[in-house]
Computed example of a mutant assay.
Amino acid sequence: MQFYLATSFIFPRSLRFRLFTLCFLTTHLPLLGYIVWGAATGRIAWAEFIVLALATMAGAAGALIGIGALLDPIHALADALDPAEQSARKRGGPTLPEVGDIISRLFHGVRGAAVATRERIDELNIAANEDALTGIANRRGFLAQLDALPLARRRGCIAIIDLDHFKQVNDMLGHDEGDRVLADFASRLSSQTRRIDIIARWGGEEFAIFYQDAIEDEASWSLARIAERMRREPVGMVGDQPITFSAGLCAWRGGPVMTAIGQADEALYRAKKSGRDRIQRAERPSTPVYG
């Protein structure tokens, strides 16, 4: 790059002419030496000089053709990677010099490819951590968000929620209606929880909520409020019955998160066995971390 910048005064807008000049000078150094020697000794042979000059010019021209052929793939790569350049050409606007700024074109092309790659990686990361149907986090995204919390913020309550008799929704109303119910329920959870709370589709018709910095009474009250609204303004009906949910709730004080989730899941199982449409607390809190 330093050599490129140092020689930019030679045909600054044409890399090919700059290369030709450098090739001509370097291939004619022996000829220039011969001229200096002939002038000093008076023994220059003009016939040999002309033949040698023509031969070196032909060599320089051949070298330039070869270099041009080697640069053609770079042109193609720059055109393929630089959508801004192509857009400018279509609009008839100013474009980069055809050859003189080949380094700039290549740089912009590679930068464009890097931006596109980074955006694609971001899209893949979102897809890996987000549930496509509901738009909220999936199980992996939920656990990743919990893992990203500082130790002091890893305390609150974890709830595992399951829509009651959801199989009947799919069997009686169809899977499209089942998908709509899941999406509407996710929206309801999002609208009735705090910004600091983390919600996710845990899998199938199960959802998870982390109530950050909340005690069990606060989390239980929040779930009860959502459950009451589900009865008054159901997201769907099966027969003449509104779709309800059951939930298991467990306090989490920074211990192994899967232990707390397991205890919440056990509480959910007891809620289901007790008749559904209810909230059950875990029998014991998760193991705390001391120190």
Rank of each mutant, 00 (worst) to 15 (best):
Ile161Pro: 11
Asp213Leu: 07
Ile215His: 02
Ala200His: 08
Ile199Met: 01
Ile35Met: 03
Thr95Asp: 03
Pro234Asn: 15
Gly254Trp: 05
Ala224Asn: 09
Gly178Phe: 05
Gln2Leu: 06
Ala113His: 04
Pro94Trp: 12
Pro94Ile: 06
His75Tyr: 15
Arg105Gly: 03
Glu216Met: 12
Arg155Gln: 08
Phe207Leu: 04
Gly174Asn: 10
Asp147Gly: 11
Ala137Phe: 12
Asp184Gly: 13
Arg180Gly: 13
Trp46Lys: 00
Ala251Lys: 07
Glu283Thr: 06
Ala260Lys: 13
Ala183Met: 03
Arg155Lys: 13
Arg201Asp: 00
Phe9Lys: 01
Val36His: 14
Ser87Asp: 14
Gly262Asn: 02
Gln192Gly: 10
Asp179Val: 15
Leu15Val: 08
Glu123Arg: 15
Ile161Lys: 01
His108Asn: 02
Ser190Glu: 13
Pro288Trp: 10
Glu119Ala: 14
Ile44Asp: 00
Arg140Trp: 08
Thr193Ser: 06
Asn170Gly: 15
Thr95Tyr: 13
Gly239Lys: 15
Arg16Ala: 14
Leu71Tyr: 09
Asn129Pro: 05
Asp184Ser: 04
Arg278Cys: 02
Ile196Arg: 03
His175Met: 04
Ser87Tyr: 07
Ala219Phe: 12
Asn170Tyr: 06
Leu96Ile: 06
Gly33Ile: 07
Leu249Val: 15
Ala84Met: 12
Leu163Ala: 05
Met57Ser: 14
Arg281His: 10
Pro73Ser: 03
Arg89Trp: 10
Arg225Met: 15
Asp179Ala: 03
Lys272Ile: 15
Tyr211Val: 09
Pro73Ile: 12
Ile161Val: 07
Ser8Asn: 02
Ala53Asn: 04
Tyr269Lys: 10
Leu5Pro: 08
Leu31Gln: 02
Leu81Gln: 09
Ala219His: 11
Trp221Phe: 07
Gly135Ser: 08
Pro30Leu: 00
Ala224Gln: 09
Glu206Phe: 04
Ser14Lys: 01
Arg139Cys: 02
Ile74Phe: 10
Lys273His: 13
Asp197Leu: 03
Ala219Val: 06
Leu249Cys: 10
